[in-house]
């Protein structure tokens, strides 16, 4: 079973790096925020592989949901001016 876990870790870590690069490179700001949320989302599965279910649950509840929300709340108040 260990080769599968190792393969999963490698795949998820590569995906996380790609998502992080997208978060700082992508043109539109909402998509950059969404890519940041994707990093948290994948990170929580990696935490579970590293045998940390408590941390994985925190990351799933906070990182992917609430943080993304806060960004979109602020962004929706600044329509028109966010891209300069």
């Amino acid at each position: 079973m260990s080769p599968i876990l190792t393969g999963m870790t490698v795949l998820l870590c590569l995906a996380m790096i790609v998502a992080a690069l997208a978060a700082i490179r992508v043109k539109s700001l909402p998509m950059a925020i969404l890519a940041g949320g994707l990093v948290s989302l994948i990170l929580s599965v990696v935490f579970l592989i590293l045998a940390a279910p408590d941390v994985a649950m925190t990351e799933a509840a906070i990182g992917s949901g609430l943080t993304t929300f806060l960004f979109f709340f602020v962004l929706s108040r600044m329509r028109g001016g966010e891209d300069d």
Partner: peptide
């Protein structure tokens, strides 16, 4: 500024 904050969270 918002992009900087996204980078901080990463």
């Amino acid at each position: 500024l918002l992009r900087m904050i996204v980078a901080f969270t990463v």
